[in-house]
């Protein structure tokens, strides 16, 4: 039971008549680095949105660390130990780096005294210090007071990870963390994620970059057209006929398989 930190059972979601997630079940082992991959439109980001409660699910169950969160409102789920980054950077553009990270602390500071504590008037308070330390730990100590809109893309990506981490999640959902990064930035991001993983946080990563997945992840779940078609190690994934067909099309139906 406790070997997995996240259990998804028979997840189903339709938008109108279109079933985008169809009977998807998988478990994420505690401490693992699981990748969720698949061709464009396979439903990977939708799975994230269902997990974090952006949309309600039609059927199925989501259990996070033994607690059923299927019907928990989106703004409470983070308190159960789940946090995420976004496919397109979604930092608050008008907030400074430290303030963005302090937003990540919100899940741990929802009591009235915490809400009314003047963070901005006491620059050395424990929340600001913690946020600055978390940034420094991630190698981002250079930009504490800057408004994030002006920072480089790769730096913003890593700030997103730090923001998600200060909520102290059991599982961190990363939606295409390496997308749009150059090699150096990808390496910096991977180093950060390795440290996050080493600290005991489980990673669930949606990613297109198979090289990045093979380097980082130890388990892979493949979706295609909203269904799970494969689960196994990164080494196995390339040899699986169903996965090859999903990405490349089958020999017999080259014309029909516009999966991407």
């Amino acid at each position: 039971m406790n070997a997995s930190v996240l259990d998804i059972t028979r997840l189903r979601k339709s938008f109108g008549g279109l079933t985008v997630i169809d009977d998807v079940s998988f478990s994420v082992t505690r401490g693992s680095r699981t990748a969720l991959i698949g061709p464009n439109g396979a439903g990977k980001t939708t799975v994230f949105n269902l997990l974090t409660g952006v949309y309600p699910i039609d059927d199925g169950r989501i259990v996070l660390d033994g607690q059923d969160i299927t019907t928990v409102p989106a703004n409470d789920r983070v308190t159960y130990g789940m946090s995420r980054s976004f496919q397109n950077i979604r930092l608050m553009p008008h907030l400074s780096t430290v303030e963005n990270v302090m937003l990540g602390q919100h899940a741990r500071a929802r009591s009235l005294p915490s809400l009314l504590f003047p963070l901005g008037l006491t620059p050395r308070n424990k929340w600001a210090r913690e946020a600055a330390d978390a940034l420094a730990d991630a190698g981002l100590g250079t930009y504490p007071g800057q408004v994030v809109a002006n920072l480089p893309y790769g730096v913003q990506k890593r700030i997103e990870v730090v923001r998600a981490m200060v909520s102290r999640p059991k599982i961190l959902l990363l939606d295409e963390p390496a997308a749009g990064l150059n090699q150096v930035e990808t390496a910096q991001l991977q180093a950060l994620l390795e440290r996050v993983s080493a600290s005991g946080t489980t990673l669930l990563v949606v990613e297109h970059d198979m090289h990045f997945v093979r380097n980082l992840c130890d388990h892979v779940v493949v979706l295609n057209f909203g269904r799970k078609i494969f689960e196994g190690t990164p080494a196995q994934v390339n040899d699986d006929p169903a996965v090859r067909e999903a990405y490349l099309g089958s020999d017999s139906s080259m014309g029909a398989a516009h999966a991407s």
């Binding site: 952006v54 308190t79 553009p93 008008h94 303030e99 302090m102 937003l103 990540g104 003047p118």
Partner: peptide
């Protein structure tokens, strides 16, 4: 505006749905 509540106001101004996912009501 210097309190955490003020910070949540400014976060909501920038991106409501992300603020929600970080626990803001």
């Amino acid at each position: 505006m210097a309190t955490r509540l003020g910070l949540t106001f400014r976060s909501i101004h920038d991106d409501e749905s992300v603020a929600t996912l970080f626990g803001v009501n």
